[in-house]
Simulated scan of single mutants.
Amino acid sequence: MGTATVTVEFEPSASLRMLGVVMDAYKQVFAGRTAHVLSRPNPVQRTGFDLELLVESVRAEAENVVSLNLVAHERALLPRWKPGSHVDVFLPSGRQRQYSLCGDPADRRRYRIAIRRIGDGNGGSREIHDELRPGSRLRIRGPRNAFDFVEAPSYLFIAGGIGITPILPMVKAAATAGVRWQLIYLGSARTTMPFLDELSDCSGGTVEIRPDDEFGTPDIAELVGRAEPGAAVYVCGPSPVLAAAQRTMFVVNPTGSLHTERFSALPVLDGKEFDIRLARTGRTLRVGADETALAAIRRAIPGVVYSCQQGFCGTCKTAVLAGRVQHRDRTLPDSERENFMLTCVSRAADDSLTVDL
């Protein structure tokens, strides 16, 4: 993927350089949901910081989907963002969730996010749907971008369900730029698919709405194969859709680039059981071969902080007091790999670890 940057056209003062130092201290909590680019890796781009915002409006966008417009106090300007960006949202309960920005990047007065209600989830979406109202206060962190919108001769967008949220601003950006684009929007039924009305206003490309109850299960390889040679293909949606796109992209379109974003934790691959000792509590936990150290720690410390669960954001960085770590992240610098780990993805290289928890 390309690199999303914020252009600053002046020499930073001493105070701004100090701000940069402070921002670096935050960097472990500013990366977010994973964006996999099979063409080349992309660092998470950070443009903002912690902000206290107000819910300006709550709107039903589809069955079990609401959007929130968030504004700053006194309608102050918000940090700039680019298509593909998302924010951490800290709910009144203390839960932390990540949501894509799906509004207009040119509108510096408000951020829009959309949330699908997950009845059997961990409660974050239910809290938003049931408890947040206009005037509610929320703390956010960001925006940041690990799903950068790159320049390309043409685009193919495949969005599954709520995966339309990061894709929607990209479609509008492509339409504004006059670049060739196609969008294939998947969902279980039209009633569950948000922003259909906004998509009808996008010009210069094609929008194909493919709900399962009308078209059946989609053939992802066939859909990916519709991309023009050299196209950038963006896919966001359920894990099976992402996996199918990754398996087939360079078979059907070897000259293009594939950019994907997932909303769930990565599965544990090639894991083995190990013990993790929590030094502060004296407890020793057994980490299963198919679970993360974070999952085991959460059984003992439900309030332990974490965010992306995919080795990007660094929120779960923990000091390692004994044992060797099998690092599976892309975030920790070499200088920290001997004494720290990201518990959401990294594991013991041997039979046990002792961490400062």
Rank of each mutant, 00 (worst) to 15 (best):
S100I: 10
E11M: 08
L199K: 05
G94C: 07
S67E: 06
D270P: 04
A221Y: 06
N69L: 09
G187W: 00
I162V: 12
K27T: 07
H86C: 05
V252Y: 01
A175H: 12
Q96F: 04
G230K: 04
P105A: 12
A106Q: 11
E336S: 06
R17T: 13
P254K: 03
A177T: 07
T47W: 02
M249F: 13
A60I: 15
V252G: 13
K82S: 15
T191P: 14
I184H: 09
G121Q: 05
I297S: 08
G225Y: 04
T3D: 04
S85F: 14
C236K: 05
H129N: 14
S100D: 13
C202P: 08
M341L: 15
R46E: 09
Y26W: 06
D356C: 08
G230E: 00
G48N: 11
L294P: 14
V171K: 01
I301H: 08
T284E: 12
G48P: 06
I140V: 15
T191S: 11
A279T: 00
A146D: 04
V65E: 07
D350V: 07
S307W: 00
T284Y: 01
M23L: 11
H36N: 12
T34S: 08
R190I: 12
R95A: 15
R247D: 13
G323T: 10
P83A: 06
A76V: 01
E52G: 00
D197T: 00
I164M: 00
S67M: 01
V21I: 04
E61N: 02
P134H: 10
E208K: 07
P211F: 01
G314C: 08
G84M: 03
T292L: 03
V22L: 12
A221C: 12
L223Q: 12
I220L: 01
E208M: 13
E222H: 07
G135L: 09
R337N: 00
A227M: 12
P240R: 00
I164C: 09
Q182N: 14
N42G: 03
R137N: 12
T191E: 11
V207D: 10
L196M: 05
E131S: 15
Q326L: 04
G103H: 06
E261L: 14
F250D: 13
I164G: 07
D212S: 11
M18V: 04
A31L: 00
Y234C: 08
W81M: 05
M249T: 02
R330M: 00
F274K: 06
S154V: 11
F157L: 09
I220Q: 03
T248R: 02
V71Q: 10
N145L: 09
G161T: 04
R137K: 05
V355E: 06
D88G: 02
T248L: 08
V235C: 05
A31G: 15
D213A: 00
M341G: 02
F10M: 01
L168Q: 06
D197P: 02
L258W: 13
P302A: 10
R116D: 10
M170P: 11
R190W: 01
R112H: 08
I276S: 06
D201W: 10
P43G: 07
R126P: 10
L269E: 14
P302H: 13
G237Q: 08
L132F: 03
S239F: 12
I113C: 07
V241T: 00
E63Q: 10
T354Q: 03
Q98G: 02
K317I: 10
D329V: 03
L16N: 01
L78F: 05
D201C: 13
